[in-house]
Computed example of a mutant assay.
Amino acid sequence: MSTRHMSGRRAQATGQAAKIIAVVADVMGVVLGLWILMYLLDANRANDLVRFVHDVARWLAGWSHDLFTFDEAWARVVSGYGLAAFVYVLVGHAIAGRLRRY
């Protein structure tokens, strides 16, 4: 097999990996953003979808949950979960960009 053919496969594989990483980062950001929206709109916490989104968002934002101590609960939710969403999307796309240049 030629070197050119091997490097083409490698580029294709890293491109696919970059795409997967970017999509995963976006999904994580969407879940966190969706929970922020559900919280702000006072979604029914007894609803299965709301509970699922909250559980996943809380797990994703475990490191940033209640990081800030604002007096208002909505500000803590927006800042804590919003920071996690921002970091995941930023880091995920940065890694994907590096892979694409590889």
Rank of each mutant, 00 (worst) to 15 (best):
G97R: 06
A17L: 15
D66P: 03
Y81A: 01
V50T: 13
L49T: 12
G15S: 11
L90V: 10
A46E: 07
V89Y: 06
L67G: 11
I95G: 02
A96P: 03
R98Y: 07
L41K: 08
A22V: 03
G62E: 08
L40A: 10
A85D: 06
G8S: 09
L34Q: 09
V89A: 07
A11N: 14
G80T: 00
V23G: 03
W35L: 13
M6W: 09
W74V: 01
R76L: 00
L99Q: 05
L49H: 01
A13L: 14
S2L: 08
R101H: 08
R100E: 09
Y102Q: 12
A94I: 06
F52C: 08
R51Y: 11
N47W: 07
A57N: 07
Q12S: 15
A94K: 06
L34G: 12
S2A: 08
V31T: 13
S2C: 09
A43M: 05
V30C: 03
I36Q: 14
W63D: 09
L49Y: 13
D66I: 01
D42F: 14
A46D: 05
W63F: 12
T69F: 10
F52D: 14
N47G: 02
D66V: 04
H93V: 06
W74Y: 07
M28E: 08
R51E: 13
L34K: 07
W59T: 06
G8T: 08
G82C: 13
A57M: 12
L90S: 11
I36K: 12
R9A: 11
G62R: 04
W59M: 10
L67C: 02
W35H: 15
V31C: 07
D66C: 04
H54L: 11
G80N: 03
I36Y: 08
A43F: 12
K19M: 08
D48S: 14
N47H: 11
L83A: 11
L37G: 11
T14K: 11
G82F: 07
A25S: 10
G97S: 09
A85V: 02
